[in-house]
């Protein structure tokens, strides 16, 4: 396949950056999108240029590191996959492909297509856990959890922290990420004691990081590689309202 790439290049965090054009010729259809970039990069290097920098690691859709906005959509238009799972057979001969980073004020660009998503780590540190000292846990079967609750918790826990939800949201809101973690832990009896503290802590950290607000357009749900439903946002809203009320009056 022969394609044209329009790629965001930015030498470092403080550089202004711009879109540059690269040819991507003789690309095998079976290659993945990132393998296509590998091929382009190998040619750039051999021609003496600086390769296109992008984050990637596991290349099997689970680590959450890869983070490209392809033709305006984080990861890709097809639902349920990450950038590294996009295959070139989805494109057509002669296509022009726009490749941009995940854009949000809370995700500053490190270089080219790499961003700094530490804000997510800080949100988890603000309450996205269940405090349990190692070795102090009761027997695993001592707290039965209904299969449905376990499944719901799992659906939310499937989040890989890639940040596509933020990148897709026109407000760069992190509500799907925060909602997913809050729902995962709040749904389980183990997570109950810290529920209010968790919700208030994570939401405040989210706001402090400069993410926008949810305006219920569900773009996040549409691009989430783990297809997490925006229902987790509804539940987060409810849990937040309850927690904030209890905080005010109790």
């Amino acid at each position: 396949m022969n394609l044209t790439l329009k790629v965001w290049r930015q030498a470092h965090a403080n550089d202004t950056g711009s879109i540059e054009t690269y040819p991507a010729n003789d690309i095998p259809e079976e290659a993945s999108f990132l393998e296509m970039l590998d091929i382009v990069n190998e040619r750039i290097i051999e021609d003496g240029g600086d390769p296109i920098h992008f984050d990637h690691d596991c290349r099997e859709g689970i680590c959450g590191m890869c983070s490209l906005t392809i033709n305006g959509v984080p990861h890709t238009k097809d639902s349920g996959i990450t950038t590294c799972q996009v295959h070139m057979r989805k494109f057509r001969e002669g296509d022009t492909i726009w490749v941009e980073p995940f854009r949000a004020r809370a995700f500053p660009i490190v270089k080219d297509l790499m961003t700094d998503r530490s804000a997510f780590d800080r949100i988890i540190a603000a309450g996205g856990y269940i405090s349990v000292r190692t070795g102090s846990a009761p027997d695993a079967n001592s707290i039965p959890i209904s299969k449905d609750d376990a499944n719901d918790a799992f659906d939310a826990a499937a989040c890989i922290g890639c940040g596509a939800c933020v990148a897709a949201c026109k407000n760069a809101s992190a509500m799907l990420f925060v909602g997913a973690k809050a729902n995962h832990l709040n749904k389980l009896p183990q997570g109950e004691p810290e529920k209010d503290k968790r919700v208030l802590g994570m939401v405040r950290q989210m706001d402090a990081e400069g993410f926008g607000n949810c305006t219920n357009q569900y773009e996040c749900e549409g691009v989430c590689p783990k297809e997490i439903s925006a229902d987790v946002i509804a539940k987060l809203n409810r849990d937040y309202a309850a927690a904030a009320t209890r905080e005010a009056v109790e």
Binding site: V132, S146, A150, F154
Partner: peptide, 16 residues
């Protein structure tokens, strides 16, 4: 035990 207490959503049977 440790992981269940941390909230790891292991697969469960209908009885919980």
């Amino acid at each position: 035990d440790q992981c269940v207490a941390q909230g790891v959503p292991f697969a469960r049977e209908y009885g919980g």
